[in-house]
Amino acid sequence: MYQMFLGGALRVKAAALAGGAWSKQWRRWAPVAVLVGLCIIIGLFNPNFFGGANFVRMLNTAAIPLVICMGVTFVILMGSIDLSAEGVIAICAVAASMLVANDFTGIAIGLFSVPAAILIGSLVGLLNGFIHVKFRIPSFMTTLGMGFAGIGLATAILGGVMVRISDSSFRDYLSLGRVFDIPAAVYIAGVAVIVAYVIQERTRIGRWVYAIGTDEATARNAGIPVDRTRIIVFGIAGAFYGLAGALSAAQIGRGHALISQDRLFTAITAIVVGGTALSGGVGSVLNSVIGVFIVIVLTNGMVLMGIEPYVQKGVQGLLIIAAVALALDRSRLDVVK
């Protein structure tokens, strides 16, 4: 399996050297090719992979990462980074679980907790953006700090316990309930992807995100309100984290401070593997969708193929490097850092 990946990488390198439109097209479709290739390989090892039940399971597993990635992608396209996702999700998940019927507070506003979580998420996101822009603190530090503060706040509120959700309709509508045998979370994630795509393609903010991520000075010269756009984009990202928080709480039926552990790393891996450049300006929310599925299919597939746990991490690492190598136009990079 490694040889196949590496072989692919080498061919692409040759293509890139040959240059031309073909290699450009290839780079655009490389993440899809990686995903399809992975599916075929895994399916050859274990035909169960292609079963309908497994697809539903993978979609279900992908739902929350998809929602998170929609938010992080915008920030990365803008040339910034958002490391606050885990903290914001924790706050929102805890808030959502405390707003529906639960064993911690007497509040029970049912599904209204979802817009509430989204609102809280976007407020924290706006705060991220505001601090980043107004105090000129790099987004890396601002959001890192905000993420820790979020987990700290969730911890402080709960004091180490968990909130158990007793509102079963909340869990049904957001996670467990099924329509056409597909869990509710998958539909919600689907809507989140569509909303993100519309923001990207059909709004001014969407255009400006690319402009700022490509060349901030030019964007400023073109009259784009760069600072305001940055703040709004962090707010949009926060809204997606808020939704992800509500979905997380519904999925496990509990809210606690560590509910989103390791989500951020998965999200950024998926975004990069999907072909969105950390340098900004290049990529798309659709790339991130592909990236999420690559990561999910890989995790699922390695268990299906019975790959030794010790080897799994190595395969994951190699895949990330290979996927980035395929998708990136390195000939344009002067300095690699």
Partner: peptide, 17 residues
């Protein structure tokens, strides 16, 4: 890795396998 989410994903895959 003591991680709830990872356990969720792995268990899903086991059900397929």
């Amino acid at each position: 890795d003591w991680n709830e989410q990872k356990a969720f994903e792995i268990t899903q895959a086991w059900l397929t396998r």
